[in-house]
Write a protein that binds this DNA or RNA. Structure first.
Length: 304
RNA sequence: GGCUCGAUAGCUCAGUUGGUAGAGCAGGGGACUGAAAAUCCCCGUGUCAGUGGUUCGAUUCCACUUCGAGCCA
């Protein structure tokens, strides 16, 4: 079974630099697992690696979706599998790098997604019901379809409640059935998962610094530009930094308030990422504050 | 120098008619299968500034000390 290296970890932990150096040493190519770096014209705020940083290492699934388009894990899974195959066919080693746990899991657990597309009309319809009769109404509807799934979903978790209904509408299956079927296929590659972490205070310092640098590099202008260029953002505006700058431009915050808010939200995001990555017990943890080559050596040992 | 007000959780503050205390924010932990940088759940012990006094018992009342804010000299 071919090996695929996975490098995850919270934002600002140093995944990019480590993975590029690793790729150079093992003749690897990189597949991003980042739900925001997929978007074009969103560079500063997503900390997308520049051509210079890439040092000639080929990167996949970066900078290829228009911010006014939708994208989802299902598509990611398909695109990433294709990229893995391509890299292996060239005799190189694929390195998955990114902080979107959902995307990473779709690969390492070989989760199968049926070929369906989002029914926007139905979603709007559900949205209307929620507004009119309250979320409880949707929760009740979902309970009638899949009581088991609902025991694990909060009565306030609108997205997941709606998803139960959407899955049923699109496939005629319950979420519970759907999930059972999604895990039937054996995992196709030997995924070796590594995660970078730092002492919490250090990580937060790095995040704060990174946000200051983004502002200096022109994040506000970048947001202005994409607001000019595109007229809708189904998911891209969920990106950290982007929504806060929009609020600032609309006068909701002062500049300093906006900066502090981005820092805070990014710290919280990092915490959520760590919660996610800690779940996988196979993961080998690297200390980001240690020498980079030392960490690369740990990876090299870990994959053999 | 005098007077007044304050000093309680990392921060902003509430409160205890004397029986060792609680909100918001921050922070921590967790969940996560087609929006995931999203969405959602759970978590509050801190010499109640210090020292003495009164009291069965003081964070609460009293005195002094320290620090801060304001006013008067």
């Amino acid at each position: 079974m071919e090996k695929v290296i996975v490098i995850c970890g919270p934002t600002a932990s140093g995944k990019t630099a480590l993975s590029i150096e690793l790729a150079k040493q093992i003749n690897g190519e990189i597949i991003s697992a980042d739900s925001m770096q997929i978007y074009k014209d969103m560079n500063i705020g997503t900390a997308k690696p520049t051509q210079e940083e890439m040092q000639g290492i080929k990167h996949y699934l970066l900078d290829f979706i228009s911010p006014d388009k939708r994208y989802s894990v299902a598509e990611y899974k398909k695109d990433a599998k294709k990229a893995i195959k391509e890299i292996i066919s060239k005799g190189k080693t694929p390195i998955i790098v990114g902080g979107t746990g959902l995307y990473v899991d779709s690969l390492i657990y070989e989760i199968e997604y049926q070929d369906i597309k989002l029914d926007e009309e139905y979603r709007n319809e559900l949205e209307k019901i929620a507004n009119k009769d309250g979320l409880e109404k949707l929760y009740e509807m979902a309970e009638k379809i899949d009581r088991e799934a609902m025991t694990k979903i909060s009565k306030k978790d609108k997205k997941r409640i709606m998803r139960v209904l959407e899955i049923y509408k699109a496939t005629g299956k319950t979420k519970t059935q759907q999930e059972a079927e999604s895990r039937k296929k054996p995992v196709e590659y030997d995924y070796k998962v590594f995660a970078i972490n730092w002492e919490r205070g250090k990580l937060y310092e790095r995040i704060n610094l990174r946000v200051d640098i983004m502002i200096e590099q022109g994040l506000i202008q970048e947001v202005n530009d994409i607001l000019q260029k595109y007229d809708k953002f189904p998911t891209a505006m969920q990106g950290l930094g982007y929504k806060e700058v929009v609020d600032y431009l609309n006068g909701k915050y002062t500049k300093q308030e906006m900066i502090d808010k981005i820092k805070m939200e990014t710290r919280r995001y990092a915490k959520r990422q760590l919660t996610w990555f800690r779940k996988n017990k196979q993961t080998v943890w690297l200390d980001g504050s240690k020498d980079r080559q030392n960490n690369i050596n740990i990876i090299l040992e870990g994959i053999n």
